[in-house]
Amino acid sequence: MTPVQILFILVAAVTLGAALMVVNARNLVHAALWLIVSFGGVAVFYAMLNAGFLAVAQVVIYIGAIAILMIFAIMMTRNVAGDSSPRFNSSQIIGLVLALALFAGLVWMTLSWSGATTTPMPLDSRADPISQLGSALVSPDGYVLAFELASILLLGALVGALMIAWDRK
């Protein structure tokens, strides 16, 4: 095994373990902290896939914004954090079976697909992926419409969240 493969297995184990702890944690703040570990592992994978921008953006957006927002929400719904009522609902067996079946199906599909063993294409060393990504996002031949729609979506979410959470008293 090459060092890169060992690194992959270590990071994957940490990420999946943290994800399992999210599902299993009784204390919600612990769940959020494990979620952060999991997000960090995914960021490492982005870096391993030569997507440096996405790796850093993952840390900024998921850890810096989403996870902290979740911790904040958990603190605001505080007496739920130390809740001793059962963690799982009545359909947990069905959920477990469905999740395992989905995992088994996906693994079977991946292994039976001939393209799954490809190794990465050599990257063009002259091309700068960040400027490529930037021009793809704003060029009319690229994804400018989706980009603008995403910004409208974010604005809508901002206003919507404010309206919903507003305490009209």
């Binding site: 902290l33 952060i36 440096g52 921008f53 850093v56 953006a57 840390v59 900024v60 850890i63 810096g64 914004a65 996870a67 902290i68 911790i71 700068d128 960040i130």
Partner: peptide
């Protein structure tokens, strides 16, 4: 010499925030 150095600074700042919350 990260080519996303500035964004890296912001990301590390986000982790600092997290430490204080913890």
């Amino acid at each position: 010499d990260l080519n996303v150095g500035i964004l890296y600074l912001v990301a590390v700042g986000a982790i600092a925030t997290l430490a204080i919350i913890m």
